[in-house]
Amino acid sequence: MIVALVITVFALVLTDLWLVMSVAVTAVLSRSANRRLRWTTGDHVEDVRNRSSLFAQLSMMGMVNTVAGAFAGLGASMYVVNSKVQFTWSIVPVFLLGIALVLVQGGGLVVGYWASRPLRAWITSPFVLEATVRKQLQAGPAPAEVIDDYDQILAELRRRPLVRGLTTSDGRVRPGMRSPVAEEEWPPARDHDPVGWTGRVRDDLDRRAAWRWVWHGQRRAFVLPLGIGVVLSGTAIGLSAAQLNPGAPTTVALAVAFGLWHVFLCWLGSKAARVELVLINRQHALVLAKLTVCADLIKALRELNRPVHPVAAEPVLPVLSVGRWQLFRRPHR
């Protein structure tokens, strides 16, 4: 019984530490991101592809080559007996060397296929689309099929859930979690103050919005460890009551202490969720504003590609004909 109580208390401590760390990390990162959120134009699609391709080749292929090298080393070592290379009839080294070869070739093919996608396939956010269309506007007119691709990418971006947890799979904002004040921030004015806008959005949110966000967006970070902690607390109280009298003051004190502690953790979680919800609302409003800017830029690109037809001259008709002489009316200018 005592061993079970010790294990339960140890698991309770770990679970509550997990919850406290989740709350602290969420609060700190969200507060910092609210201060740093700016109206920016993302990198061009070529820069995004170059950076992503380099990262994939260095990281993924590095891991694949390490595993393949281990298999190849194991397979090659089976041909060495007493420091001498000898032939073996076992299929195991051949199998290991084959796995190494497949890993290297297969990993290279996957990375190569992923990195050699069309350039426009790398436009996965409104920020990259905006930078790409702006560069195209500076370069001059573009083919009609390129502009159609931009329109398709914009339509696809609008169909996606802009912010997970805040919006549903069909793009609708969950009720009670949206702040209309956040949409007034972008595009920002000259005196834009991120900290001031953070306070305005926080004051505009409903008091129960943080709990809705915890349930829809932070179940694993807040709800799951809190539920496990409550269950472990009840188990610890039950095991301690089994050792003492059920109505002992120690059992009652433990129940009150565990209850107050988890209520305090709930309060901390709601505060952290409120800060994160402010950030989510501002990011959602920023993405919506960027989509509108992208639509305007694509429209301007279409106008740039529209051919300019010369105005047809007004036909000049004779007023009076006498023999081979004709009198014409002067056209209006």
Rank of each mutant, 00 (worst) to 15 (best):
V28I: 13
V48R: 11
M60H: 10
A210V: 10
A313R: 13
L254G: 02
W325E: 06
G196E: 12
I228G: 01
P141C: 06
M60C: 08
T235R: 03
N34K: 01
A312I: 01
Q218Y: 10
A4V: 07
F71M: 02
Q105M: 14
S77T: 07
A313F: 06
G140Q: 04
W18R: 15
H332E: 11
G196L: 06
V275L: 10
A242D: 13
P188K: 06
L232T: 05
L226K: 12
W211T: 08
L101E: 14
A221N: 09
L260S: 11
W267M: 07
G107R: 03
R172H: 09
A72W: 00
R120I: 06
G196K: 12
W213D: 08
W39N: 04
R51Y: 06
S125I: 01
A155P: 00
L279Q: 11
V9S: 04
W39P: 01
R220F: 09
A273V: 05
W114K: 09
A285Y: 04
I280V: 13
P180L: 06
I123A: 03
S59P: 02
M78I: 03
K271F: 07
I2Q: 10
A131V: 04
L301M: 12
A100T: 04
T292Y: 02
S22C: 09
G323S: 02
T235N: 04
A272R: 09
V319C: 02
P93W: 04
F127E: 15
P175R: 14
L265D: 05
L103T: 07
Q138H: 07
S179L: 03
C294Y: 00
E276R: 14
D43P: 03
R159C: 09
G234W: 13
G108F: 07
F87A: 09
V319A: 13
Q326L: 02
A56P: 00
R120D: 15
A210Q: 07
S179G: 05
R159E: 13
L304E: 13
G62M: 02
L254R: 09
M63Q: 02
V64K: 01
W122L: 02
E276A: 14
R158T: 01
K84V: 05
A142M: 03
W122K: 06
V230K: 00
V64N: 03
R202W: 02
A289S: 14
R174L: 09
W186H: 05
N245K: 11
A24W: 08
I2Y: 05
G107F: 05
N65M: 04
S83A: 11
V275I: 13
V20Y: 11
A285V: 10
L12S: 08
D148W: 00
V287P: 00
V322Q: 01
Q326C: 03
L157H: 03
G73T: 01
S90N: 13
P249C: 02
Y79L: 11
A68F: 02
V3E: 13
A272V: 06
G323D: 11
A11C: 14
Q86M: 13
A295N: 14
V322W: 03
N65L: 03
E184C: 00
V163M: 15
V13C: 07
A100E: 04
Q218F: 07
V102D: 07
V45C: 01
H44L: 05
F55P: 01
